[in-house]
Write a protein that binds this DNA or RNA. Structure first.
Length: 477
DNA sequence: ATAGGGTTAG
């Protein structure tokens, strides 16, 4: 969009064609949304039936556009539309769409919308299916609305629908996460009365809730009772308990539990995985018991369990926080990479990120530069944080030099468009027109959006380079 | 149903 404002500033003669092309592209994607939105405005009865009869091909951008237009004043219509769209065969809302719907329709701030829609369904005698219920429950889950989810659960019989385990699990998880374990447990007991049986997922939500509330005994009691319902304790559930014990700080018990999980006679159902080991390592690091954390890494390696990026970043942070010795860090990184599962890039990037978070900026910059010297490519987060810091310090020329070096190593960009824009603007404002022009070209090559508000300054600086080729390319984006 | 660490796209 702002590239277009650049072309306007640059030379009016170039702008007509590209603008027409993009206008055309927008109008084809909007037509489906137009049809649907217009219909929402006109409906009197049978909204859902009529929407279906329009036979519009649904996709996420069209659904997004419709709910966006319903934004401030027509949230209820927007919600009804979103629910209808989700029930259409051939379309399934992505998790991204659920977050968008919650955002645009302000479901969290206005949870009564859900009840209003159901009232309309009843009044207009709309068909409400299990699929409808599933979509509404997913919305409640996204918006973390436990009470509303329970209200929806209670509406199943009103529409002659049977509640299933998936629906119960969703509501139970919401209450358990909220810390209302009384209600969560009540619902779990209620499942039996509906010929439903709690499964491993139900138990895991409950156990997680009890552990977060510091009630490890209650969590154990549940775990012991799982077999009553034919459920077998597995790695995920057991690791939840172990996590709770870690949080309580009793690392001796944690080691006993870990040993229990490692025993062969459990048939491997609860054998620890990378997440389990990482939780234990994290527990020791938080208690500043780094040596023991490192021993857990060895133990993990002996059992053939590979560390991952989380394991690496937890350990590296632990070592950086507790040791002055650079040797320890490089020994650790060597070991991690030798075990496999993480790369040098993962390790050095993690170290850079940890140092920045610990406000040890000079060491972070050294680490970042060392990485480049050794030909190791920094990951996206490390780049973002380093460039953000350099921009705050107004060291735009350094940004450019580092950027150039990273670009030489590889073509795939790990730096987001906003940072590109900030660096570009900084270079322009500090009179580094040549560098700005080179960065602008690189951005054009990547088809990157230019989202800065100081387009005028950028254009003026770029004009100074007298680079006609660049000007032409900017104007024909 | 599994942790953690930014941003983008859909």
């Amino acid at each position: 969009m702002l590239i277009q404002s650049i072309s306007r500033l640059l030379s009016p003669s170039f702008q007509s064609q590209p603008l027409k092309i993009s206008a055309l592209r927008i109008s084809t994607t909007l037509s489906a949304a137009d049809t649907l939105y217009d219909h929402l405005q006109e409906y009197t009865t049978n909204l859902e039936k009529d929407l279906t009869s329009l036979k519009v091909k649904l996709d996420s951008s069209c659904i997004n556009e419709v709910i966006k237009r319903c934004n401030p004043n027509q949230s209820q219509l927007g919600l009804r539309f979103f629910i209808w769209a989700g029930t259409q065969s051939g379309h399934r809302h992505s998790p991204y769409m659920y977050t968008k719907a919650c955002d645009f329709l302000k479901i969290r701030a206005n949870p009564d919308l859900i009840k209003d829609v159901f009232e309309a369904y009843l009044k207009e005698e709309c068909l409400v299916s299990v699929k409808t219920m599933r979509i509404v429950l997913s919305l409640c889950s996204q918006a973390k609305l436990a009470d509303e989810a329970l209200w929806v659960l209670r509406k199943f019989p009103v529409f002659d629908l049977c509640v299933d385990t998936v629906a119960y699990n969703l509501v139970i998880r919401l209450f358990a996460d909220k810390g209302d374990l009384y209600m969560a447990e009540k619902l779990m007991k209620e499942m039996d009365c509906n010929d439903l049986c709690p499964d491993v997922i139900t138990y895991t939500s409950m156990i997680n809730g009890f552990c977060n509330a510091g009630k490890i005994d209650e969590a154990w009691k549940l775990a012991k009772g799982m077999s009553k319902h034919g459920c077998v304790l597995n790695t995920v559930t057991y690791s939840r308990i172990l996590e709770g014990v870690c949080k309580s700080g009793d690392m001796e018990t944690v080691l006993e539990l870990l040993a229990e999980m490692e025993k062969e006679d459990c048939g491997g159902f609860i054998s620890p995985n990378a997440v389990t080991y990482t939780l234990v390592i994290q527990g020791f690091c938080e208690k500043k018991r780094i040596r023991e954390a490192l021993m857990v890494l060895d133990r993990m390696g002996e059992r053939g369990c590979l560390p991952n990026r989380v394991t690496a970043s937890v350990l590296i942070q632990g070592v950086l926080q507790n040791d002055e010795d650079v040797e320890d860090l490089s020994k650790l990184i060597d070991k991690l990479v030798k075990l496999g599962g993480v790369s040098l890039s993962d390790c050095f990037s993690s170290a850079t990120v940890s140092l920045i978070r610990m406000k040890r900026w000079e060491e972070a910059e050294k680490m970042f530069r060392l990485m480049l010297v050794r030909g190791i490519r920094p990951d996206g987060l490390a780049c973002t944080l380093v460039f953000r810091e350099l921009c705050l310090l107004e060291r735009y020329l350094d940004c450019f030099l580092l950027y150039d070096e990273i670009e030489k190593a590889d073509v795939k960009s790990t730096i987001d468009s906003n940072i590109h824009s900030v660096i570009l603007l900084g270079l322009c404002e500090h009179g580094h027109s040549w560098e700005a022009a080179k960065l602008a070209k690189s951005m054009l090559d990547k088809k990157m959006r230019l989202n800065v508000s100081h387009i005028g300054n950028i254009i003026e600086a770029l004009k100074k380079t007298g680079d006609e080729d660049l000007m032409r390319r900017l104007s024909t984006v």
